[in-house]
Structures are given as C-alpha cells and as structure tokens.
C-alpha cells in the first residue's frame, strides 16, 4: 500500500486548524494539475459514444467530455487533457498507482469498488442498465411480450443472470443462446438465430449500428438492471472530489436552468439568482473550490451543459441516437437531480 502522502496529511491538518474559516482547502491533485498544465485522465481504449479517437487522434465521447469539462474548470482550456487508454483489468490499479488523476471510464459504481478498493466515486454520470433489442418485424413493444423468445447474450456475465431473474420474476419462458464474443452474439442475432439481443442498453445502441439494417431494429424501453456509470478518484483528496463532483452538478444545473454553451455569455446578465450563482456573477462558489468564480461558466462555454454533452455523444446528435430515458432531468421524467449551488 501507498503511504499516506505527506502533502495530504499537511492539508488535512491545515483544514482542521482553520475549520470554519472560509479559506478554500487546497487539493494536492488540483495543485499538481495546475502546475503541470494538464489533467491526466484514464479512459476506455475504445467504447462507442463514451471514448474513441477520431482519425486525427482527437478523443471524443461522453466520458472524454467530463475530463474536458474538468480541464476547462481548472485550467480554462478543455484541450489540456492527457488521455491514458486503460483496460478494464488494470484500470483500478492504474488509478491507485497514480497513473492518472481521474478514471473516467464507464465504470459501474458498486459498493465493493467504492468501499473495498479505496476509490471515491464522484457521482453517476450515466445510468446504464440491461435492455433488449428486437427486430421491428416482431412487432414487440415491451419486454413483457417476449414470452417464449430465444435471447442472444454473452456467456458468463451478469447479463445472463439478470435475464434469468427478469424472466422468472415476470413468469415468462425463454431460451438462451450465449456466445463468448460480442461479435458472435451480434452475428447470431443479425442472422435471425434469436428473437432478442440483451446487454447494457448503451451497448445495444452501439451494436445496432453494426447490424446489416440498423433501422429495422428497436431497443425496448425496459431496463432490467442497475449500472450507474461514473468517474472515480483515489481516497484521500476530498477537495479534488469536490471539484469533480461540483463540476458535474454545475453541468446538470446548467441544463436545468437552460444555460448552454451558446447562451452562457448572455445568461451572465440573467436576473435569475440561481443562474447568477452558477455562473459566478454572485457569490464566491468558485473560490470555495480553490478556483476562480467563473469556473462553471468556463466548462459550459467550452464543453456544454449535461444535455449538450449527452446529445452530442450519445443522443440525437450522434450516430447512436440513445433516448434520454432515465438520464433525463428529474423534472423531465429522469433521475438527474443535482444539488443546488447555494
């Protein structure tokens, strides 16, 4: 195990000594990012919609944009990010060994990871879960109509267990056809060997693009498992966690308040106190994070609010066309509910 870094201990003592004083607690990670001039971000080696490099070598995706927003908040330049592609096997070890400052890699937030691995999950940025894809020709509109269906999936994953639970709970009969590799599952489904294909919903949308006729297939509305995906940092630097968490909350609040990358500068003049606090016109919320007062405005201007990020990478502005569903704002039928900046 890594020894308790002296700098963190010093920061904690300082915080304890001056508790109650409005002085911003310094985060060693943020200080290092400022000193280096770039944020180090651990990302997926390639996951459609979440992280992938384009032909020019620029990374883009939903997970990438969170790193860009953080770089905008801390360094006022969304492009100042160094991406480390990291595999599912080594991601936690790499984070613990300090290879990057934050792991933004479609990682499911579970209790064991949060507690036993010594990670700090920032929040869920995307609520994923297992869904079903069926050919339109079946005329099925709900997973409950899948009685007697043959379902394709991967072997030995929780997907298989979730499927069994769901069909048993709903008293439905089914037959499973399982394969080792994603490509095999998809080929079997495309060749009509099964009536439905099940995996995480975001994966279904990505795989659908690889079908011979993507438009002939629909993803059913039912989500049968919980996969909250979110970025994670190491234990021991709470101020860094605050910066990351409130950056996400600011992006969600911006969507709720109608502040976008296009209108952020006009919104500075808005009389709405919530918008004024978000954009740093009123209050000293940026300063309390050890940043400047327009911290959130910078992220919104350079990367966009949560809704813009979602639509650009996963939603209607992308090839994937994922519906907002549960990832909509709380007042629009979803579960996104960011605490107020006050």
């Amino acid at each position: 195990m890594r020894f308790f870094p002296r700098s963190i201990a010093a920061a904690l003592v300082a915080v304890a000594a001056f508790s109650g004083v409005a002085e911003a607690s310094k985060s060693p990670t943020v200080e290092r990012i400022k000193k280096n001039g770039f944020l180090r971000c651990g990302v997926n080696e390639g996951l459609t919609g979440f992280a992938s490099p384009d032909a020019k070598g620029n990374w883009s995706g939903f997970d990438i944009d969170f790193c860009r927003a953080l770089a905008a908040v801390i360094l006022n330049d969304a492009s100042k990010v160094r991406y480390t592609p990291t595999s599912a096997k080594v991601r936690f070890t790499a984070l613990q060994s300090g290879e990057f400052d934050i792991l933004s890699r479609n990682t499911t937030w579970t209790m064991s990871r949060d507690v036993q691995l010594g990670l700090e999950f920032i929040a869920a940025t995307y609520y994923d879960g297992q869904g079903f894809m069926v050919p339109k020709s079946l005329k099925v509109t709900s997973a409950k109509q899948l009685n007697g269906a043959t379902v394709c999936t991967n072997t030995g994953t929780t997907t298989e267990l979730n499927l069994a639970d769901y069909f048993r709970a709903n008293n439905l009969k089914y037959k499973i056809v399982a394969f080792e590799k994603n490509a095999e599952v998809l080929a079997a489904y495309d060749n009509g060997r099964c009536d439905a294909y099940t995996t995480d919903a975001s994966g279904l949308y990505a795989e659908r693009l690889k079908l011979k006729k993507p438009a002939d297939h629909v993803i059913l509305p039912e989500i049968i498992s919980k996969e909250p995906l979110g970025p994670a940092i190491n234990h021991g630097d709470q101020p860094w966690g605050d910066v990351a968490r409130w950056t996400l909350f600011a992006l969600i609040n911006a969507e709720e308040l109608g502040v976008t990358s296009k209108n952020v500068d006009q919104m500075m003049k808005s009389p709405n106190p919530e918008i004024r606090r978000l954009l740093g016109v009123e209050g000293a919320f940026g300063e309390s994070l050890g940043l400047s007062k327009d911290w959130a405005a910078r992220a919104i201007r350079q990367v966009g609010n949560y809704g813009e990020i979602f639509e650009r990478n996963l939603g209607q502005g992308s090839q994937l066309k994922i519906r907002r569903g549960v990832n909509a704002l709380w007042n629009k039928g979803g579960v996104l509910y960011a605490p107020p900046i006050r």
Binding site: E45, G46, T48, G49, A51, S52, P53, D54, A206, S318
Partner: peptide, 11 residues
Amino acid sequence: SGNADADWATP
C-alpha cells in the same frame, strides 16, 4: 480503438 468510432460502425 478505431472500431469504437460510431462514425465507422458497420458490420
């Protein structure tokens, strides 16, 4: 990695 680019997702 390139395979994950949605702009190139084909069978």
